[in-house]
């Protein structure tokens, strides 16, 4: 492990208790996040991206959640920490940006108080210094009139503004690791680009590592350095942005890329991945979890217990079926 590795996730599985039984939402995740790097985690809804993020943040109710493996952050295993120890890390060394800026802020507290709250627990600053820092942060995240915004309540701000405030909260204590869980999903396209630029800028200034969770491949191509593609709770392919976009191997990655509208192919119908991500209770015990959605690939092509295969430096793919994978012959009207 190099010095630059901030977060090292080893064999991480998280299960939720549903009607008395535990079901795995993410299984056997191995990931590293380095300083000065943006790692994107991509996948459909329900594939476990957010579960991974909230597990790292320790935001699950321990009564109904079970996590195994290791989440080593700056040399300490987060999974072994108690609440008091965890609270020293959360907000201070790991900041999180949430998906829905409309609901992630307390509707009854002024913006300033929501930003200074995180400093209350992690810094020794005086009230005055905290207020000044809050204004500074609002300025940093691109809010034009910080004094005014600081006095306002969340409902008085637009979605983009609120997301900026949430980012300000997440970076208030200059965390080493920033987790952004679909930070742009609830925003319109023009604001999306601004928010991504902001995250990138902050990451470069603080030399932090970023986990960017998204289902938007455009966002990945634009922002990330490394990419991990998740399907049904597992990582199916992992590599640098170039490797994933130029040489996608896993059928799921290829299907995802094919499902993105292209500006230069207006006549094509979009590729649709048939079926759904299996629910936790219906998750197959073994075999390739993506196999049911590519039924034309013979079952012999899949491994019985798919493992990650190292193909080139940093590029890994799960299962052997990628070797036999081709898109089916298109029905009439669809150009291959």
């Amino acid at each position: 492990m190099s010095d630059q590795t901030l977060l090292n996730i080893k064999n991480l599985s998280t299960s939720f208790k549903i009607e008395g039984e535990f079901y795995e939402a993410i299984s056997q995740i191995n990931l590293q996040v380095k300083r000065d790097q943006i790692l994107a985690i991509v996948g459909e809804s329900g594939c476990g991206k957010s579960t991974l993020a909230t597990t790292v943040m320790g935001l699950h109710d321990p009564a109904i959640t079970k996590s195994t493996g290791q989440v080593v952050f700056e040399g300490q295993d987060l999974l072994k920490m108690n609440e008091v120890q965890y609270n020293k890390i959360r907000g201070a060394k790991i900041g999180m940006i949430f998906q829905d800026p409309l609901s992630a802020l307390n509707p009854l507290k002024k913006i300033k108080d929501q930003i200074t709250e995180v400093m209350d627990y992690h810094t020794q600053l005086t009230e005055k210094q905290k207020s000044e820092r809050a204004l500074e942060l609002l300025q940093d995240v691109g809010i034009d009139n910080p004094q005014r915004t600081a006095r306002q309540f969340p409902h008085e701000l637009s979605g983009g503004m609120r997301q900026r405030v949430i980012i300000a909260i997440a970076i208030a204590c200059k965390p080493d690791l920033l987790i952004a869980d679909e930070p742009t999903t609830a925003l319109d396209v023009t604001i999306q680009a601004q928010i991504l630029d902001l995250i990138r800028k902050i990451q470069q200034e603080n030399h932090s590592g970023v986990i960017l969770i998204t289902h938007d491949l455009g966002v990945v191509a634009q922002t990330a350095d490394e990419v991990a593609v998740m399907y049904a709770g597992q990582i199916v392919e992992q590599g640098t942005v170039q490797q994933i976009f130029e040489n996608p191997l896993h059928p799921y990655t290829r299907s995802l890329l094919r499902s993105v509208p292209q500006a230069d192919s207006e006549n094509d119908e979009l590729y649709v991945i048939a079926g759904n991500v299996p629910s936790l209770q219906q998750m197959p015990k073994d075999g390739d979890r993506f196999a049911p959605r590519i039924p034309w690939v013979p079952s012999s092509a899949h491994e019985k217990h798919p493992t990650m295969h190292q193909l080139s430096a940093g590029h890994q793919v799960r299962c052997t079926c990628y070797q036999n994978f081709n898109f089916p012959v298109a029905p009439k009207g669809v150009r291959q």
Binding site: M57, L59, E83, V84, Y86, N87, K88, I89, R90, G91, A92, G95, M96, F98, D100, S103, A104, L105, N106, P107, L108, E117, V118, Y121, H122, I166, I169, A170
Partner: peptide, 28 residues
């Protein structure tokens, strides 16, 4: 609620979360 999740992510201890966020908002 999401704002309580935000508070947890800030490292606010459980007691303070109830005092400053949950009880206040529920009493409204």
């Amino acid at each position: 609620s999401d704002y309580v999740k935000t508070a947890r992510a800030k490292g606010v201890p459980e007691k303070a979360i109830y005092r400053h966020h949950i009880f206040r908002n529920s009493l409204l």
